[in-house]
Design a protein around this nucleic acid. Structure first.
Lengths: 338, 338
DNA sequence: TATCAACACGAAAACGTTTTCGTCGCGTTT
DNA sequence: AAACGCGACGAAAACGTTTTCGTGTTGATA
């Protein structure tokens, strides 16, 4: 990389001091018109651009926000990034994206690296392993050190910071209620292990809707998928039960369920209705297209970024942490008959 | 954000100089054992971590690589990021991800921001608008200034830098050949506008395979999709022709074609075989699952990162630009009969 | 006792900015 | 003629490191 032109060089070449150059470039009234012209012309000719690092060090702010996600090859998460980036960009920030790969160790490491001056604040969705272990010290430390932090989607109530979440309970309720409304009598649910809060919440919504319809909760209709094992086989078990509907807490589970149903010769939606979660490409393009709870990931990203940047820039206003609940809605498609 | 502890503070508190603290923490032999112990204990107690910004400024390197992509809510691109991140992480780098949104203006702006000291090098996939305009000055400037640069997937031959590309011609050939082999007589292709090189290359492979099979190229069987208009309608036109197979240069086009085929009552693969590109979730989970050219995005990301970091770290070895061609292979699924 | 090496540490520069606070010279005012 | 003000610029500190080059003290050696 060729060395870039600096204020120092300009100063030396033009026989003035660095202060003069700096002031001239910022159009200070302290500098005479002629000198300003001379300096600007030179700077312009050599395409001078101030060095970011130096500015960041001097201003004690980076104008960068760190994002830590469990993974990225994932429609919802990449959509959120997209929303964050839009707002960040509008408000003059760049984003630095890192992944925890669902591992606590990497999450901790990444937080450490980023908070050593590389970013002004953090937007995080917690890794599964961390949620399972309930080892949240690295987050408590962030709070302790007053690092601007926004958690989204995968959050934890003991971490006192701004949050952006989906109304997962409500969404689970809506999805299940829809199935009840179209006449389904025996509704199964495919969800995550209990430590993943989003899955737990959606399950709660499911249970409320079931009870409301006057039925009891049947444990056999609840599948908690352990992603370390074979997903397909775990879901298949559900088909041993007599069911006429499935609510899956994500796209993959829904698509897998549909595949199994087809293999079993079940007609969708005539014999089995399916509702998924996350309005990704699978739901849209698979056939039958899948009724889903749309999560508005882009909006979540936007809100998270706004919350974070507000927090960064209004350090004075020690406002209490906010929680933004993004309401989800059902997009009804072919997999559940109207 | 609470002020972090610095070497200066430690020095003042312990009544020594900053040099001593710095040396002690790096275990220099110049410092006595006792002093080292004292300083380390103090630093450890207060959880001292060196400030990245200061290090970057001093070392004149950031250990950050910039990534500029046309978009992120896209299976292939997010997979590439994933590969880049893996290697970057292993080799001690962080990634800063930005998007051009396919717009030349934003691409230029982003390049400018990132190269003002924020990153040590750049991995870019060129925006469609840039390719259309053929305005590549911002890339020529990078080369001129010897900024380490790796282009992937969407490249341009006039930019002299390392590249990682798919053998798009070969992939297009393989896909079409497969259709020919299974007995298809009239094969349509759904591709991009001509300025997108990847689409053009795949078309070239298609044409070669068609000619090889002893047929003429029929212009009516070639659809160049303009993404600013309605994709569905443009693809629909192809169905006016008598076809028994379609090669689509991406997942969305393939899925859309399948949808239209189903609406028209065509059986897949009995009456129409379909081959897509990019082995994303749609291809895998849609039904029928779609035969696709798998692009190995993860590998591409890994290679791109390795090329870039090599370039960054071996500034001395003025090696000629390399081009890595990642060969793709066909994953045969239900949408094309064997 | 004078010399020298080794030891343990500090001063200062450097990375590239911005900003506060001089300071010099010149013209105007009383 | 002395005082004052102002225009135009420079010196220096600051952000947090690392590293080169001193320098003062101690103990051993000649």
């Amino acid at each position: 990389m060729k060395p870039k032109i600096t204020i120092k060089i300009i100063a030396k070449e033009l026989g003035v001091s660095t202060s003069t150059v700096s002031k001239a470039l910022r159009d200070s009234h302290e500098i005479s018109i002629e000198t300003k012209e001379r300096i600007k012309a030179y700077a312009n000719y050599y395409n001078y651009r101030p060095n970011n690092l130096a500015l960041q060090l001097r201003n004690q702010k980076t104008k960068v926000i760190g994002i830590i996600l469990p993974k990225i090859v994932h429609h919802f998460f990449s959509t959120v990034i997209s929303g964050i980036e839009k707002v960040a960009n509008e408000r003059g920030y760049n984003i630095m994206v890192c992944f925890s790969n669902e591992q606590q160790e990497k999450e901790i490491e990444t937080i450490n690296v980023l908070t050593n001056g590389s970013v002004d604040g953090l937007i995080v969705s917690i890794a599964k392993e961390t949620l399972r272990n309930k080892e949240l010290n690295h987050f408590y430390n962030l709070i302790e050190n007053e690092v601007p932090l926004v958690l989204f989607d995968r959050v934890h109530s003991s971490i006192e910071c701004d949050r952006v979440i989906v109304d997962d309970v409500g969404a689970g309720y809506k999805a299940t209620k829809h199935l009840v409304n179209i006449g389904c009598k025996s509704i199964g649910i495919i969800t995550t292990p209990e430590h993943v809060t989003v899955g737990l919440d959606r399950l709660q919504g499911y249970e409320r809707a079931i009870k409301e319809s006057g039925k009891k909760i049947n444990k056999n209709l609840i599948v908690n998928v352990d992603e370390d094992k074979d997903i397909y086989e775990q879901i298949k078990v559900l088909f041993n039960e007599k069911i006429d509907a499935i609510f899956a807490v994500n796209e993959i589970y829904a698509a897998t369920a549909i595949r199994i149903a087809k293999e079993k010769g079940l007609k969708i939606p005539q014999e089995l209705s399916v509702v998924g979660f996350t309005d990704g490409l699978i739901s849209k393009y698979s056939s039958p297209s899948i009724t889903t709870v749309v999560q508005h990931g882009f909006t979540m990203g936007e809100q998270a970024a706004d919350l974070l940047i507000d927090r960064i820039e209004n350090d004075k206003t020690e406002k209490a942490p906010q929680t933004k609940v993004i309401s989800s809605n059902l997009k009804i498609r072919e997999s559940s008959k109207a």
